[in-house]
Nucleic acid binder design. Structure first.
Lengths: 200, 200
DNA sequence: CGCCTATGAATGAAGG
DNA sequence: CCTTCATTCATAGGCG
């Protein structure tokens, strides 16, 4: 019966990878259509397959890069596993509950691992501890929350991607209006304003 | 060359299972790291191993339950014996020792187990609601091919993503010059008639 | 040994 | 974009 889910043929994959290698990341819809048309020569395929492929590939590619970058930081910081002091005081917000691994995994003793039931930690709900994880996130943290590589103007943001207008409806605190430089924000991001991300 | 895949040591496995039993399903990145660090005491291990372990364990736990439930339905229906699109030849092992999916957790831990809870998805400086866009009903004409969250209207397509609205204007050459964000590659010819010597 | 199952790893497809 | 789920690929280990 029909394949429940698309799987790229070697030919298709090669083309996709080549496009990606050439720099294509967020294909416009017309680009997606063109690609789809082209790839359909090598097997059944839909636009959404192409769309998702780029999305996933980019995400997982970036994850890899972040991982590597973090490794460098790791070397620089030397064991940042227990650099977070327990912040049990000042915890008014009970929304953000978690299994406290600091507690679950005390620095040295194994005995204390199983003394109680669920080890719960309530910590401040600021930042973006969304209590979720993914392979894309699992190797990094300390990311700043606000948009990257984007320009804001008139309370809206957009890029000049051909055929697409990217508007930001979720305005963050960033008031930066400039839009003339090429990649200024990237350097800023290397130094997060606030050391968030690391929780617990 | 083929790097042998990770296999948990008994110690590691026990800890993982215990965490799972305690309700941990989608560990955050920092949780994954802590776990990894802890487990590394008992053998070589990487973050992704921990991540995949939880993903797989959860998925297969759920999968098993799903099959069982379906079995019950099967008994109840008796008609078409081939309406099941999956591979079900592997159902002998009913050694479901402790698949208590009806975990009961102290109220304070609930959100950890069900990360979809929106209360903990706090973004800094967030104020707008992106879903307020009035264009919802999909007038899906031709391009049913695209992902669902893409809505087409007036010859434009937009897709709602968190905090952003991506509008696609399929209008030939880009008339919008300002705010060059230096993303030239987005506009490259996808399938040039003649081999272009690498641009960009 | 070859088959089979359990499970680590990967990725397509969505949801938010 | 980020996170999660479902499905599939790949392989180590158990069995006849």
């Amino acid at each position: 019966m029909p394949r429940p889910r698309w799987s790229p043929t070697p030919q298709q994959l090669m083309i996709l990878q080549d496009l990606y290698r050439k720099g294509l990341r967020n294909p416009t819809s017309s680009q997606v259509q063109k690609i789809t048309t082209r790839l359909s020569l090598y097997g059944k395929i839909q636009c959404k397959n192409v769309f998702y492929w780029f999305q996933n590939h980019k995400a997982r590619d970036r994850q890899k890069l972040r991982k590597e970058l973090m490794m460098l930081h790791k070397i620089h910081k030397t064991t940042s596993d227990d650099d977070v002091p327990h912040q049990f005081h000042t915890t008014p917000n009970t929304n953000n509950t978690n299994i406290n691994l600091d507690y679950y995994f005390p620095p040295s003793t194994f005995h204390t691992l199983y003394p109680h039931s669920p080890s719960i930690l309530v910590h401040q709900g600021e930042g973006k501890d969304t209590s979720s994880s993914s392979i894309q996130m699992m190797n990094n943290m300390g990311n700043v929350d606000f948009p990257k590589h984007c320009v804001i103007e008139n309370g809206m943001m957009r890029t000049n991607v051909q055929g697409w207008i990217l508007m930001m409806t979720d305005m963050g605190p960033n008031p930066i209006p400039s839009c003339s430089n090429n990649k200024p924000l990237e350097t800023l991001e290397l130094f997060p304003i606030k050391a968030t991300g690391i929780k617990e």
